[in-house]
């Protein structure tokens, strides 16, 4: 399989954390409701959640359980109505949209079910993109993006555009893009949902390897086989965590 030993160690080592906070994610009594037509939907009814650095967590639950809302909350794509959320030591519960964009850039690496790569853009440029928004210099960007692509086993596909790559390869590009900023967590939303079983397994092996090297991984899924690989599974039902 893919050898991740060297690069991952280097990437994790560069990732500075506040030593006094043990948990990378601390959520206290997070609620979120929104209007859908005339109805008010209570998507999250009071979530308490701690995720330690280096953990591998699966979030499961039936549709409508608040999975997606929780993921958006963890990924700073949305703000809670109430409650406190500390991510990597920063209070992120009430920020402007630009501040949240900066937090996402620094702390979160997203991997989506639909890959979400830019069309007509080479693998190398895709992976360089988050570094551009982080203000990293051009040469440094290319170097780190190449490194990240090598880490996911695509060192020989740098100039390929999404339509020239298989589904599994596209998801690897997305993972490289998520890794390249050395985020606090990788947030994966059904990462194998659009892939066949064999390709999905290979990809899960890659996540395992990343986690073994210290990367915090949070994965939303409804496949028990996928969730089994995680150290911990969080069950969500009607906007609350089940124990």
């Amino acid at each position: 399989m893919i050898d991740v030993t060297e690069q991952t160690t280097e990437m994790m080592g560069a990732n500075g954390r506040n030593a006094t906070d043990t948990a990378v994610i601390q959520m206290r009594n997070i609620t979120k409701s929104y209007e859908m037509g005339t109805q008010v939907v209570h998507a999250l009814r009071g979530i308490d959640l701690d995720i330690e650095e280096g953990e591998y967590v699966a979030i499961m639950g039936p549709s409508g359980s608040g999975k997606s809302t929780l993921m958006n909350m963890i990924g700073c794509l949305d703000v809670p109505n109430s409650g406190a959320y500390r991510l990597g030591g920063d209070d992120v519960s009430a920020l402007t949209s630009d501040d949240r964009a900066r937090i996402r850039n620094r702390h979160i690496g997203f991997v989506f079910q639909q890959f979400n790569l830019l069309p007509r853009t080479s693998a190398l440029k895709q992976v360089m993109l988050p570094l551009m928004y982080a203000g990293v210099s051009r040469g440094e960007r290319a170097r780190r993006a190449k490194e990240a692509l090598e880490l996911v086993g695509l060192g020989d596909r740098l100039d390929h555009r999404p339509d020239e790559l298989s589904g599994g390869q596209q998801q690897r590009v997305a993972i490289a893009r998520a890794l390249v900023t050395q985020p606090s967590i990788i947030l994966a939303d059904e990462p194998t949902g659009a892939l066949d079983t064999h390709t999905g397994d290979e990809l899960m092996n890659l996540f395992d390897n990343l986690n073994q090297k210290g990367m915090t991984i949070i994965m939303v899924t409804h496949e028990p086989m996928v969730a089994e690989r995680a150290h911990r599974t969080i069950w969500l039902r009607d906007g609350l965590i089940q124990n």
Binding site: G75, R102, R104, N105, F110, N116, L118, P130, Y133
Partner: peptide, 9 residues
Amino acid sequence: IRKAIGALR
């Protein structure tokens, strides 16, 4: 996508 990975307004 751009906003998710950190693009500002």
